[in-house]
Write a protein that binds this DNA or RNA. Structure first.
Lengths: 279, 279
DNA sequence: GCAAAAGTGTTCCCTTTACACCCATGT
DNA sequence: ACATGGGTGTAAAGGGAACACTTTTGC
């Protein structure tokens, strides 16, 4: 690669940011890390970091995911011997407003990861702590408003009320203000997840390798924030070809009658789709 | 903004590339420009260019769109006095494989634009000519294969057969090989358009301000590459609230009985969606 | 027995589909 | 008259919503 010639084009820093979603205790949660340095020192932020010289975008995202969670995502572009434990990783959108980082011009390629319920996260990189935060706590109740349809940049502070000097703000009642434009990125990621579980089998990425129909239903209920009819859900999900395959055993970990265990089937697209109830 | 410190992060060039789609003579077409310089000199490529120092990503995409086509897209982030002639512009995906440009490390934020049938394109920038090319000619018949679901990078040359030294290749029988990874970008853009007209009113972005139900149906037929029942299509589309509003007049430009003219209604999401027939 | 969760059966209703049929214009 | 595209009616088939009911565990 020829040396960098600053007269030919303006130099940018390129980062990847991660929206890692999981379902914990019936709530949709995302991984946030506490910033150890300015700007936004002490505030919660999405995990992320610089893309390296010789790395592609999905590789950088997968590397950050491992560093933050230990998860190995399935990356179709990676060479075969990559142990995937089923986590899903896809590109979400790119954010590049000129003033989004006061230090320099940064373009961030956000990625969306879906993970089963994990043990406590391990902190890493420039963060001095990390946790799973309910998205409702970070975005408020009205996450459905911004449909993330139009061009996904330059919307300003967005949904989370950015209340001034509250560095390190937490447990103050209102939503916690994320650093940078991360509230918008998170909202876009949540909206993507809510849409995709309608017409794809991605909801299984929130489940352990073997799971019951009831556990899968509770994933849909947590992500969409609605209650679903267990009887119709069961019929629909077991009747959709390729969605679920019986794993053989049963479990009684939820109480009540033992439930059959399933694994995710080969299908990725659901036809007909799961229908999200009206608001 | 502080001065650039090359020790802090690797410098990237950031560009926007445009997938501009339109329907011409019953075929889905995209705007391509001929490259005037190496690499890929003489080959067709998607229009695009560097993002400027003080410009956000959607602003750069809108600027390129004006430069190449004269279209003013509706950008929700732009200040009010922007004349929009109805073209749709949204971010598509970002491509950043380390070797995608042999000259330097380039990350390209691709955007998707949908436009009504336009007069001949005006060439601009570093291209010495431009044209509307049927996507079938650029991608071959099997565009449906790559569903563009997974991480959208590092898939190599992709669908278009990259046949070696054929610089400036055209009208050779097989598909014309686009420069860089533009065949994949185009395939992802086409797939996005095919999906979005199912559940949104975006198909009207391919139509002039006033149009007939038959013209709208021919848009769906061209984008999906299928034949639709004109009777059921009419009932469906006029029965979906907010999709179409009567414009008052009639036209006979298609021959046969005069057809009512409509304008796009306020709705952006279609409920229930238009159903794409099975393959 | 009782509570709780897992499944199954059935009925109603709405949407889609296929196609017969009529309407209004140009040649 | 006839071809061409526009628009309405209608009946059969399929899928979703609502809910009564049975099954199998733990306490």
């Amino acid at each position: 690669m020829p040396p960098y010639d600053p007269s030919a084009f303006p130099p940018f820093a390129v980062t990847v940011d991660l929206v890692v979603l999981t379902v914990r205790r019936h709530a949709l949660c995302t991984l946030v890390v506490r910033r150890g340095e300015a700007p936004y020192q002490g505030r919660w932020a999405l995990p992320g970091g610089f893309v390296r010289e010789d790395e592609d975008l999905s590789g950088a995202a997968a590397r950050e995911l491992v560093e933050e969670t230990g998860l190995c995502a399935h990356d179709p572009a990676a060479p075969p011997p990559v142990p995937s434990n089923g986590a899903h990783l896809e590109q979400l959108a790119t954010y590049g407003a000129p003033d989004r980082d006061p230090r320099m011009r940064v373009v961030s390629v956000a990625h969306l990861a879906l993970a089963p319920d994990l043990p406590a996260p391990r902190a890493g990189g420039d963060a001095n702590s990390a946790r799973w935060a309910p998205v409702e706590e970070l975005l408020g109740e009205d996450v459905l408003a911004g449909t993330a349809e139009a061009i996904g940049v330059a919307h300003g502070a967005g949904a989370a009320g950015d209340s001034g000097d509250m560095a390190g703000g937490e447990k103050q009642g209102g939503p916690v203000a994320l650093a940078f434009d991360h509230a918008r990125i998170l909202a876009d990621g949540v909206e993507r997840a809510r849409s995709k579980i309608e017409y794809s089998s991605l909801a299984t990425a929130f489940c352990p390798p073997e799971f019951t129909v009831g556990e899968l239903r509770r994933v849909y209920e947590a992500v969409w924030g609605v209650a679903l009819d267990p009887r119709n859900f069961h019929r629909k999900v077991t009747g959709t070809p390729g969605f679920l395959v019986p794993a053989g055993g049963t479990t009684t970990r939820q109480g009540g009658r033992p439930a059959q265990l399933f694994r995710a089937g080969g299908a990725t697209l659901l036809n007909p789709p799961m229908l999200r109830p009206e608001v």
